[in-house]
């Protein structure tokens, strides 16, 4: 039943028994290795659906603790990229490494989630028939095997953590409500809260502020900025004001590959980006 752990132990990491030993640190299989200060490598990723190239030799690296915004027109491959990182879609070609040692293309979705990649969907996906509290409880980082869940009891420390997160996402008065009854913006926040409960190293956020009021959007921005450093964040967003508020490095995707990279101002000045967004 301990699929995650046993699989991770048994996995033959390509870098672990050769080559990297002279770098002078001990590698532990299945543990995130950030010795090069990079948390995510995407190299030459290609994904094809029935002849349509959703991703075309996409290469991208995210530093540990970095906050990165990804923008691009519809169909640029942003969601597919997230699918590849989280194991939902297997790339036809290319490699995805989490830290120095973990090959994400060989892990399943739960395994990837378990080693520290959290994902928020474009459409808020929460458990509508559970209370807000239960949503957070289920997401909390813990032993996620069946055996544990059968006998699990909530201890005081865990309750405190959930209460803390409830305050952070400003749903502390809604803990006992059914999540399905929340407003759209609140659902977005709940999903972000669930992500935080997972304590991921890397957060992938697909249009996190869609449907939020301006005030909610601004608060979300503040939250993300406070998370950066401890976590790495990849934010896919269309809302340029929000991207500006985050003030981070921006990557522009177009037709499945990176078109430009830099600060928002640099990117917005790029002739090719203007052409892609505005047309000829």
């Amino acid at each position: 039943m301990n699929a995650v752990d046993s699989l991770l132990d048994a996995r033959d990491n390509p870098d672990w028994d050769s080559g990297t030993a002279e770098l002078g640190h001990v590698l532990k299989p299945g543990k995130l290795d950030l010795s090069h200060k990079v948390i995510l490598y995407l190299e030459d990723i290609t994904v094809t659906f029935d002849g349509f190239r959703a991703l075309n030799k996409l290469s991208l690296t995210i530093d540990a603790g970095e906050l990165r915004c990804i923008i691009g027109p519809n169909g640029a491959g942003k969601t597919t990229m997230m699918d590849v990182i989280t194991g939902k879609t297997r790339p036809d070609e290319g490699t995805v490494f989490f830290g120095q040692t973990i090959d994400l293309t060989r892990l399943s979705e739960p395994e990837i989630a378990h080693i520290g990649v959290g994902r928020k969907f474009q459409k808020p996906t929460i458990f509508e028939n559970h209370t807000v509290f239960e949503n957070l409880e289920l997401a909390m980082k813990t032993d996620k095997r069946v055996r544990h869940s059968l006998f699990a009891q909530l201890d005081a420390a865990a309750s405190d953590r959930i209460a803390e997160t409830l305050r952070l996402i400003r749903l502390d008065t809604h803990g006992k409500r059914l999540a399905g009854l929340l407003s759209h913006g609140q659902k977005q926040w709940l999903e972000i809260g669930m992500l935080l409960m997972q304590e991921p190293k890397l957060l992938l956020l697909d249009e996190p502020v869609a449907g939020m009021t301006d005030e909610e959007t601004e608060r979300t921005g503040e939250l993300f900025l406070s998370l950066a450093g401890r976590h790495s964040l990849v934010v896919v967003e269309h809302d340029m004001a929000f991207v500006k508020q985050l003030g981070s490095k921006v990557t522009v995707l177009h037709e499945g590959s990176v078109l430009a990279e830099g600060t928002l101002e640099e990117v917005q000045a790029d002739a090719r980006v203007i052409e892609v967004y505005l047309g000829r």
């Binding site: 739960p110 989630a113 997401a139």
Partner: peptide, 22 residues
């Protein structure tokens, strides 16, 4: 908790997967 996860799978299986349950 098992029961809550089971109903969570019923309602949103992909979310359950992405928070680390198989």
């Amino acid at each position: 908790k098992y029961g809550r996860i089971l109903t969570a799978i019923r309602d949103a299986e992909s979310r359950v997967m992405f928070i680390g349950y198989n």
